Simulated scan of single mutants.
Amino acid sequence: MLGLKRDTGFTLIEVLLTIVIIAVVFISISGYFANSVIYTHQAGKRAQAVKIAADTMENIKLACINDWDTLNLSYYSEIDNLIDSDYSLKADDFKINSRITGNIDIDGDGNNDGRLITVVISWDGSKKEIELKSLVVKK
């Protein structure tokens, strides 16, 4: 037998070094995924706020068509009015503020033919908000 003894294994230092390298890579990647979960949740709430703002604006435009003179925007400032709609609210802390920010006389006859409408949706205790503005013209 001609010396069949071979050194074919890993030393303890090589194994420990491999574990340390894998741990460093895993920790940095797990931090990235944890942040992506947070950003995805925030983006979902923002998308939901945009949908609520757009739907509220469309409801206001419809109300302007139906009854221009006695438009009451306080009705469109309550989240409870949206419960019957197709919303799946992820949080119940959305606040809606809708107001007429200006009247416009488009044709110069002295009558208000247009209204500037602003819808503001805030959430997370009013820390974050989006604002949607539109011009609504009398038919």
Rank of each mutant, 00 (worst) to 15 (best):
T8E: 11
A63K: 01
T56N: 09
I22H: 05
N35M: 11
G102K: 04
L73H: 04
A53M: 05
K61A: 14
F33Q: 00
V24M: 10
M1N: 10
I38D: 10
G44L: 08
F94H: 01
E58S: 14
K61F: 12
A34M: 01
Y76M: 02
D84K: 06
G110D: 06
N35I: 04
T101C: 04
T40H: 11
S122E: 07
D67K: 03
D109S: 08
A54D: 12
S88G: 12
M1A: 12
V50Y: 04
T101E: 07
I21A: 08
I96P: 00
K61Y: 05
D92P: 08
T8M: 10
A43R: 10
G102M: 00
I65L: 14
I100L: 08
K5I: 15
S36C: 06
Q48P: 10
I117L: 02
K5L: 12
F94T: 01
V25A: 12
A63N: 05
S122R: 04
L12G: 01
G114M: 06
V137N: 14
I38P: 12
L16Y: 06
K90E: 09
Y76W: 07
A23S: 15
G125C: 11
K61D: 14
S85H: 08
W123K: 05
I130A: 03
A63P: 04
D109E: 05
K90L: 11
Y32E: 07
D105H: 03
Y39W: 02
N35A: 12
N97Y: 08
D80C: 01
I27T: 15
Y75M: 11
T11N: 11
I117V: 15
G9W: 05
D84L: 09
T11M: 00
D84C: 13
Y87S: 06
N81G: 15
M57H: 02
A43W: 05
Y39P: 03
N103M: 10
I104R: 08
T18G: 15
T101D: 09
E131L: 11
N111F: 13
A63D: 00
D113V: 06
S85A: 14
I121N: 01
I96K: 02
Y76S: 01
D105E: 06
Y32G: 06
K139F: 14
F33R: 03
D80L: 11
D86F: 05
V24P: 08
Q42T: 08
L12M: 09
K5R: 13
L16V: 10
L16F: 11
L89R: 00
N59L: 07
D113T: 11
I19W: 04
T56K: 02
I83A: 11
E78W: 04
L89S: 10
Q42S: 09
S88W: 06
G9C: 06
G3L: 12
A34Y: 07
D55A: 15
G9A: 03
S30P: 11
D124E: 15
T8S: 12
D107I: 10
W123E: 06
T40G: 15
K95Q: 15
K5N: 13
V15F: 04
I21V: 08
